[in-house]
Design a protein around this nucleic acid. Structure first.
Lengths: 336, 336
DNA sequence: TTGTACGCGTTATCAC
DNA sequence: GTGATAACGCGTACAA
C-alpha cells in the first residue's frame, strides 16, 4: 500500500493524456487553462496525492525558501525568545528555519555558516559568539551573495545590518532606582574590559553616576571573565572593600546568580545589606527567595522579530540596500 | 567584484575545453581520471571558487542530507541537551538539522511535520507535545516514506521506533533514599492521570512503597495539570492533611519549583519539615538556597544521541527494519 | 582516460 | 487553451 515513488506532474499528465506543462499550469491556477482541465488535473492530483517536489523547485528557482539562524546557544533564554519570534516571521513568509548553535566556538560558528551556504539558504540571522574576534564568515557570505542581519552580539563593523540593544537607558534607570532608594555606594560588576558590551555598560554607568552627582570610585568597578570563578573573584573584591557598596549592577543574570550565591554564603544579607540589579537573561528569579530588585530587560523577542523582518526585506530587495542599524532601548523592569 | 552567478561544472569545463563529465569525475576523485587532468580541474575550481550546487545534488540524488527535529520547546533544558547531541551525530554524518518547536500545540506540530515533508527531509526525530492525543502525522510520514524515531515523549503506539526513559528505577532510588533517611510519609505529586508518564510514575511509586513495606495512602498522591495553579493546588492538598507528608516526589522540576515556593510562603521549612525529590528538567538548583535533596536524572543527551543514531540506521537501511524500543534507566543524582 | 547523452521534476518560452 | 521544448546543475551508464 505504500507509494514507492511519489507522484509527479508527469504521472498526472500521462494518466490524463495531456502535457506536463498543462498540468503544471493547472496546479498553479494559471488563467489560460480551461476550468474543466484545471478541475480534472486537481482531482487527479488529489487522487495520487501528488505533492510538488520542492527539491526540484528549489533547484530551478535558485531559491530554497530557507533562512539560517546562527546563535551561541539555543538554550539561552534570550535566544529562545528571539527564535520563537523569528520562527513566527519565517512561517508567515512560508520560509523554513535552519538553526545552528556555535557554543561560542569560532570554528564551529564558521562551520555552521559553511553548511548554511552549502544548503543555499536565502539569508542568515546571526549572533556571534563571545570569543569571535575575526569575521572570516563575512567573506564567505559575501561571495555567495547571502544577505545577513546580525543581532544582539554583533561584529564590530560599520557596513553591516544589525539589530542591537541600547544598554544605556536601562543602566540609567537602574542607577536612578538605586539613588531614589537612598543608595550612593553603587558598584558595577562588568564583563571583560575589551568586550564592546562591557565598554557600553561602563560608559552608561559613568553617565548615570554623573547625572546623580555621585563621584566615580575606581574600586567600585570590577571585571569578570564571565566564568563562575571570575564572577566570584569579582564580588569578593567588592566585599573586601573597606566601604562595601550597598548596590550593584551586574553584567547579566548569570553573573548575578553567582555573586548573589557567594554573598549569601559570606553571611551578607541580600536585599538588605546589599542590593542587585542585573541585565536580564531570565533565570527563574520568580522562584528565588531573594531575587534582585529589578532587571534590565532587552526584549529579545522584539529584537528577533525585527531582525527577521529586516532580513526578509533584504531577501526581497532587488538591489542590496544600504546597511541598516536598529537599536532597541533597554529598560528597567522591577520584580513583581 | 561580486560573482553574479556561482561557478558551475560547465563553466570549468568550458574554460578547460574538456567535458563537464570529466570535470565532475575529477572533482569527485574518480579513479579513471588522469592525475594531470584532475589537478588542472581542481586548480580551476579553486580559482573560480566553485562550490557544488547542493540543491541540484539533493534533487538528483533524491536525498537532502537533512533531518528534522520536532520538539515541544527548544528552550527546555532537557531538549537543549538532547539537541546538542543530535547536532553532533548529524554533523559527523554530514547531515543538517532543521528544528521546529511545537510549543505543545498539536496543530503547530502537524504543520511543522508538513514543512519537513515538503523539504523532503531524510528522517525525523520527534518528541510529541503534552496535548497531542492523536497522531495524524504518522500517516503523513508513512506516505512519504520518511523514517521517524520518537524520543522522550512518545506516542502510545507499538509499531514505532522510540527511545524512552524508564522512570521506575529513579523513583525506586528516590523512595529508598527517603526511607533510609527515616521518612515513612512519602507523597507523590503526579501529572495528569491520563498521561502515560504519570501512569508510569504511579506504578513505580506503588512498587517503591511496597518494597519498603510502607502501606499506600490514597491521600498522599495528588495530581496537577502542570500549570502553576495546578501545582499550587496539589501541594495545598498535601499541606492540609492532618498527617502531612515529610517527603515528596514531584512530577518534574517545574512542579517542584512551584510547590517549594508555596511551601516556603506557608512558613513550612524546606529540607527540614518537608523534603523534595523531583524528576529533573534542570532549573538552576545550584543557585537556590534550599534546593531539593536530589533529582531523578533522565540523561537527555544520551537519549538524543541514541535516537539520532537509530534514525541514521533507518535512513541507511535498504529495507525498513522492525521497530525498535530503547529504554534508558533513570537514576537518582544527589545535589552536590 | 575521456566524451556523449540522458534524466531527475518543474516551469518559462515559444509555438500552434 | 494547450503542447512541445529547453533549461536549471549534476552524476553516470554507455560509448569511444
Amino acid at each position: 500500500m505504500k507509494e514507492s515513488k511519489p507522484a509527479t506532474i508527469k504521472e498526472i499528465a500521462k494518466r490524463l493524456k495531456i502535457s506536463p506543462s498543462t498540468v503544471s499550469r493547472a496546479l498553479n491556477d494559471h488563467p489560460s487553462i480551461g476550468l474543466v482541465t484545471t478541475m480534472r488535473v486537481k482531482k487527479m492530483a488529489e487522487e495520487l496525492n501528488y505533492e510538488p517536489n520542492q527539491t526540484a523547485i528549489f533547484f530551478k528557482q535558485r531559491k530554497t525558501f530557507t533562512i539560517g539562524v546562527v546563535l551561541p546557544s539555543l538554550s539561552e533564554p534570550f535566544f529562545s525568545a528571539a527564535i520563537s519570534e523569528i520562527e513566527n516571521v519565517a512561517n508567515d513568509k512560508n520560509y523554513t528555519v535552519i538553526m545552528g548553535q556555535s557554543l561560542d566556538d569560532a570554528d564551529r560558528e564558521f562551520r555552521i555558516l559553511q553548511t548554511l551556504k552549502t544548503h543555499r539558504v536565502d539569508g542568515v540571522l546571526m549572533s556571534i559568539g563571545k570569543n569571535t574576534r575575526e569575521y572570516p564568515f563575512m567573506e564567505l557570505l559575501e561571495a555567495a551573495g547571502i544577505p545577513v542581519v546580525f543581532f544582539d552580539c554583533v561584529p564590530d563593523l560599520d557596513d553591516i545590518n544589525k539589530v542591537v540593544s541600547d544598554l544605556e537607558t536601562g543602566m540609567l534607570e537602574a542607577i536612578d532606582m538605586f539613588v531614589s532608594c537612598g543608595h550612593r555606594a553603587i558598584s558595577l560588576i562588568n564583563g571583560p574590559p575589551l568586550l564592546p558590551a562591557s565598554v557600553e555598560r561602563m560608559r552608561a554607568y559613568l553617565k548615570g553616576l554623573e547625572r546623580a552627582g555621585i563621584p566615580f570610585k575606581e574600586e567600585y568597578v570590577v571585571n569578570t571573565d564571565l566564568t563562575t570563578e571570575g564572577n566570584e573573584a569579582a564580588i569578593s573584591q567588592l566585599l573586601a572593600l573597606p566601604q562595601r557598596p550597598s548596590a550593584v549592577v551586574s553584567f547579566n543574570d548569570y553573573v548575578a546568580l553567582d555573586v548573589m550565591k557567594l554573598v549569601r554564603e559570606r553571611g551578607v544579607t541580600l536585599n538588605q545589606d546589599i542590593h542587585f540589579i542585573s541585565y536580564a537573561n531570565y533565570p527563574l528569579w520568580t522562584y528565588m527567595e531573594n531575587p534582585p530588585m529589578a532587571s534590565i530587560e532587552q526584549f529579545p523577542g522584539e529584537q528577533g522579530k525585527k531582525a527577521a523582518e529586516l532580513l526578509f526585506e533584504l531577501i526581497d530587495a532587488p538591489e542590496r540596500p544600504e546597511p541598516v542599524k536598529v537599536t532597541f532601548k533597554s529598560h528597567l523592569v522591577s520584580k513583581a
